[in-house]
Design a protein around this nucleic acid. Structure first.
Length: 226
DNA sequence: ATCTCGATAGTCT
DNA sequence: GACTATCGAGATC
């Protein structure tokens, strides 16, 4: 799809730590269209980041608001590390730590557009591969979007599709790390430089519900909700 | 399209 | 003991 291949190499293409050593809102905005990649034993899984949210330690909605605990320790570590948490008794959610060390800031990755590894994703999501094949054979754009959202349209769904669990918590996702979970800049030709970014209230929170720190690209259908 | 609700377990008061 | 940065099913309009 649109100019992406599977030729990205972590040692060459992973985002440098400096990308994440900025304020959470700036990182949340610039992560849009970047590629989230998980190199698993079964193969590469890749998606285009389409929805993010910023959380900071002076923000009542943030896990880091009340200081460092065992659960949120990764948020107070180096930028570019993963903060994976478990919630509602069944879902994992992936954040990338941002800002200076110990700032307690991070960006939640809420949705991606599936780019590579759709079969792996569907298997992990417990969906029938034949169903995927049937739907993609009948290739209306709508169908692709619908399936994309079923696979990866939400923070819990994308972690399940990507096989991200507690074991990825605190992994270094930057070029300096050697883990299998990382983020790359998109191929230039696959990005519309004119595209506008929308800020809206974050999903599923009660504290600070009015702060517009959820970011999406105008017209991008691969979001968890409208 | 929009809603309400139940599942399910870790985290913090 | 209450709450949760969610999801999917089922009801209702």
């Amino acid at each position: 799809m649109d100019g992406h291949g599977d030729t990205f190499a972590r040692e060459r293409d992973a985002l440098p730590r400096s990308f994440f050593e900025r304020d959470a809102v700036a990182v949340a905005r610039s992560l849009l269209n970047c590629l989230l990649i998980h190199d698993t034993d079964a193969g590469r899984i890749m998606g285009r980041i389409s929805e993010t949210e910023a959380y900071t330690s002076d923000d009542p909605a943030s896990h880091s608001y009340r200081g460092k605990t065992e659960r949120n320790a990764a948020m107070f570590g180096p930028a570019g590390h993963a903060y994976v948490y478990f919630t509602y008794g069944m879902h994992f959610c992936l954040n990338v730590v941002t800002g200076s060390e110990a700032s307690g800031d991070a960006v939640l990755i809420r949705s991606v557009e599936p780019i590579l590894g759709r079969e792996l994703m569907s298997r992990r999501r417990g969906l029938a591969v034949e169903e995927i094949d049937r739907m993609s054979a009948d290739d209306t754009a709508k169908t692709g979007v619908r399936w994309g959202r079923i696979l990866c349209g939400g923070p819990g769904k994308l972690c399940q599709a990507f096989g991200i669990t507690r074991s990825e918590n605190d992994d270094d996702m930057t070029r300096d790390g050697n883990g299998r979970l990382w983020i790359a800049f998109p191929a230039a030709e696959s990005v519309n430089p004119q595209a506008e970014i929308t800020a809206s209230p974050r999903v599923g929170i009660r504290q600070a519900a009015e702060i517009p720190w959820r970011f999406t690209i105008v017209g991008d259908p691969f979001v968890s909700r409208r």
